[in-house]
Amino acid sequence: MSTTISSGPPCPAESVWDAVAAGLLKGDEAVTAMEHASNCAVCAQTLREAIEIFAVEEPVTTNVVSIGVRPRLAPAVRWLGIAAALLVAVGVGYLATTQFRSPEPLTLLSSAYTEHRTLDLRLPGASYGVMQLERGGEARKPTHAVEAELAFRSTLERMPNDPGALHAKGRWAILYGTPDDAIVALTASRDATTGKPDAGLLTELAIAWREKGRRSGQAADSLHAIEFLGQALQLDPTNAAALFNRAVVEDELNLWSPAILDLEKLLTVEPSGAWSEETRKRLVEIRRKV
């Protein structure tokens, strides 16, 4: 639902919203336009679409002055470099196809998560694992995680936009890297995927934002997590990981009623098993706070 508060002045042209979203319109002119949009559902939607187009997720080089032509290497050095890179690529590719042919890196990372779970949130599709306290850079990397890293790196060397490998890179970064790296990789995977995004991928994007929020202390990051989990649940309303994770984030934001609703729904979706035990414990803890 969106709201039109008052009729006010006539709506500006679409190009004005482009100029606002692209940063061309500034100062009072921009504020006046935005004021109109904040009270006009039609213009708010047009502006939203413009934001969607112009939002810069990957940095765009504007410093043209600094862009020069790279000095050319001597041909022999260049070809030696290319040959070396090819050898490395072939070597890594051989390793990937022989040693790590199967299973897939995403599956390997799910196993690593279960085997040595250091994340309180649920990784989509992963089996239950007992929560351990070890976190961050000191966390031990299970063999599965190392195998997965080699596999997705190898794929990305050949196909930098491969959605599956980017997804695996994001999942790896959630577990063993940084939330920022995870967000970049998972967003790239989402953008490279044709058709609707996968609910599991959105759930992992939410995990990355929540982890980022925990580190930065910025509540807006947790809000992003809730947004992505909402999107995941729109695609798959009974997604157990998304329901569980949203309840955890809502609990952290003191939004206990929605957290309880999510956990109760989760128990109807997943009434038994190891995960349900943890769900019940969390439900009891949150009910105590209300």
């Binding site: 709201t3 692209a22 708010a44 112009f54």
Partner: peptide
């Protein structure tokens, strides 16, 4: 107003360059 009336997300509001 963007947030409560028009349903903008915090990310969308923050993405407006002149804001």
């Amino acid at each position: 107003r963007f947030y409560y009336y028009q349903g903008y997300t915090a990310k969308e509001i923050a993405a407006i360059p002149d804001f």
